[in-house]
Nucleic acid binder design. Structure first.
Length: 492
RNA sequence: GGGCCAUUAGCUCAGCUGGUAGAGCAGCUGACUCUUAAUCAGCGGGUCGGAGGUUCGAAUCCUCCAUGGCUCACCA
């Protein structure tokens, strides 16, 4: 901030004057006894006359967000972590101190003590007896009517966004409540929370390009994890039968309204259960969280109201295609599927596998219609290198993805625990990688070794927490639920 | 990475087919002891995102660059 404009220069001048007069513009000598919300709660039901009779006092601290000066009196709104409250400064009460009130600016943080009363318009207000400036603001806040709208500024200077846009603060309070509700739910179900490495020597557990870094002392390349999956399953081998991890994953891919390079993922694993169990479990989880955080299962989202009331439809993937009029031959005949996809103007590569073509067709013909919660089940084995095959059809897997608001929000399957099959599937991925698929898995020998010791049958699920928060806060962009989304460097 | 759009005062925005920059809020000065978008009078504030070009003249037209938004591709 080199450009010292007039507004900023004025504030620096006030700051210097305060220092000269012996007042510390960054004083730490104020400890509020209560909050604006607590004051409101305590006196909301108390009438004007009762307050006049009682003479109740309170001390609070907060940032000045509005000021109306009358010469010998002034009304000021301050905002603390819990809300806003009006203050009333009067010259006849404050005497000499009143001159300093005129030096206060919107944005300054002050501590006040005073009597609670109601104004003529019945607004609960604090009549200030003493006040102290605890933090001088050197930069002016955005305008009071429109707030801060410029999305670039909102993301880059989230601190300002949080000061002036109350709904932003609310969103992140809800985010915190959602995450707490998830933890409470899982702990009540007997899970333990674990932390597995963020830095992987072999990035695995998902199909994605990783960020790479380097460890100097060991002189090895490391990758920021794209998923914790393979480590969590090692813990099943170790004997924990219910584990979860709720933390960041990192994927070196495009940024969009649905994607941030680092994002928060919940993964959990249950021994001796399969993917059917997880569908019931997921319904209960979502319903519990929505009830706790929003108090309802009917969630407004964009133009829709999402109804989270269980049970949700469960549709096998191929069946979902049939329902949208995709011909049967697409499911059974790879060459026909390619031809048909091209006829539908889908961008499918000539050498794509049958499963990849089906996946494309699904995205185009089904996914965008899955507004209400829907489980799509039984994905082709090729798209699911870590999932268990269906006994009655080994080309399909015991897997589901949960779609809400036309977005994948959870992915789960019965975990493959046959080390020989796992090794073959890794080998197939390695082949794909050599043929240029840079999102294919690498071989993880240690993971196969772990399976060779024996992993109990288990079901595992991943839930994109950011997307869950988007859903429950009616946010259209992932950047609205991540406090500091990734941005390019600020232009100089 | 591709396409489309945007960038003007601290903030929110006007600015026509090119004629030399405006409003509201915020700020400053003054008046005002129940206002809440307070009111009233006055004042200051701009490398028009950056660099080139066309033109007698560019915020406006053209080119390149930067950042952002949406979108497509990849993915969760």
């Amino acid at each position: 901030m080199d450009d010292m404009n007039e507004l900023v220069a004025q504030r620096h001048k006030k700051l210097a004057e305060l220092r000269e007069s012996g007042n510390d513009p960054f004083s730490n000598r104020f400890d509020p006894e209560t909050t604006t919300a607590a004051v409101r709660e305590a006196y909301d039901a108390v009438t004007k006359d009762a307050l006049e009779a009682e003479h109740r006092f309170a001390s609070i601290a907060g940032r000045i967000v509005a000021m109306r000066d009358f010469g010998k009196a002034a009304f000021v709104h301050i905002q603390d972590a819990t809300g806003r409250l009006q203050l009333y400064f009067r010259k006849d009460l404050l005497g000499d101190q009143y001159a300093q009130v005129k030096k206060l600016d919107i944005g300054d943080i002050i501590g006040v003590k005073g009597r609670v009363f109601r104004t003529r318009t019945d607004e609960l207000t604090l009549e200030v007896n003493e006040y102290v400036l605890v933090t001088k603001a050197l930069l002016p806040l955005p305008e009071k009517w429109h707030g801060l709208k410029d999305v670039e500024l909102r993301y880059r200077q989230r601190y300002v966004d949080l000061i002036v846009n109350p709904q932003v603060k609310e969103t992140f309070q809800k985010r915190s409540a959602i995450i707490k509700a998830v933890r409470d739910f899982l702990e009540a179900k007997g899970f333990i929370e674990v932390e597995t490495p963020m830095m992987h020597q072999i990035p695995g557990g998902a199909a994605a390009r990783p960020f790479s870094t380097h460890h100097n002392a060991l002189d090895i390349d490391l990758f920021l994890r794209i998923a914790p999956e393979l480590y969590l399953k090692r813990l099943l081998v170790g004997g924990y039968d219910r584990v979860f991890e709720l933390n960041k994953n990192f994927r070196n891919e495009g940024i969009s309204i649905k994607h941030n390079p680092e994002f928060t993922m919940l993964e959990f694993y249950v021994a001796y259960k399969d993917y059917r169990y997880l569908m019931d479990f997921t319904e209960e989880l979502f319903a519990t969280i929505a009830n706790k955080v929003l108090g309802t299962l009917k969630v407004p989202y964009g133009d829709h109201v999402i109804d989270l009331t269980p049970p949700w439809p469960r549709i096998p993937m191929l069946e979902s295609l049939r329902q949208k009029g995709v011909p049967d031959a697409v499911m059974t005949d790879r060459d026909f599927a390619l031809k048909w996809a091209w006829e539908q103007k889908l961008e499918v590569k000539k050498d794509s596998s049958h499963a990849k073509i089906i996946d494309e067709v699904f995205k185009e013909f089904v996914e965008q219609y899955l507004v209400q919660p829907t489980f799509i089940t039984d994905y082709p084995v090729e798209l699911s290198p870590l999932a268990k095959r269906k006994p009655e059809n080994p080309e399909l897997t015991e897997r589901f993805e949960l779609f809400i608001a036309a977005r994948e929000i959870a992915n789960a399957f019965s975990e493959l625990n046959d080390p020989l099959d796992q090794r073959r599937r890794f080998e197939k991925q390695v082949e794909a990688k050599q043929q240029g698929d840079d999102e294919a898995h690498a071989m993880d020998e240690d993971f196969v070794r772990a399976l060779e010791y024996g992993m109990p049958p288990a079901a595992g699920e991943g839930i994109g927490i950011d997307r869950l928060v988007m859903l429950l806060t009616n946010s259209q962009s992932i950047r609205d639920v991540i406090l500091f989304p990734q941005m390019k460097p600020e232009a100089q």
